[in-house]
């Protein structure tokens, strides 16, 4: 079975996100002065071959923890893309 996931990685709360801040600072000059808390992160899409969904998801968690994110500075969220659960 093939399972498709998206892993969303962003800087932890409380850490200054200079990219997010720069984007935020640019928004008022373009006419959107009412936007706050902009954070810029990274999205990783991947497909895992595995016996079942739980096994695939556990592996994605492991990969996110040990490689795709750095737990010192980042947090991650895993989304499963719908409609790709089987081939």
């Amino acid at each position: 079975m093939r399972f498709r996931f998206e892993v969303l990685v962003s800087l932890k709360e409380g850490l200054l996100d200079p990219q997010g801040k720069t984007v935020q600072d640019a928004l008022p000059t373009l006419g959107w002065p009412n936007v706050s808390d902009v954070r810029v992160g990274r999205r990783i899409e991947l497909t895992v071959d595995a016996e079942d969904e739980a096994t695939a998801r556990a592996q994605v968690h492991d990969m996110a923890e040990r490689f795709l994110s750095n737990p010192v500075i980042e947090r991650y969220r895993i989304l499963e893309v719908e409609g790709t659960g089987a081939t």
Binding site: L11, L15, L16, P18, Q19, T22, N70, V72, I73
Partner: peptide
């Protein structure tokens, strides 16, 4: 320990 991230001034 720790990590190195984007410079504060970008």
């Amino acid at each position: 320990p720790g990590a190195l991230i984007r410079n504060a001034g970008l």
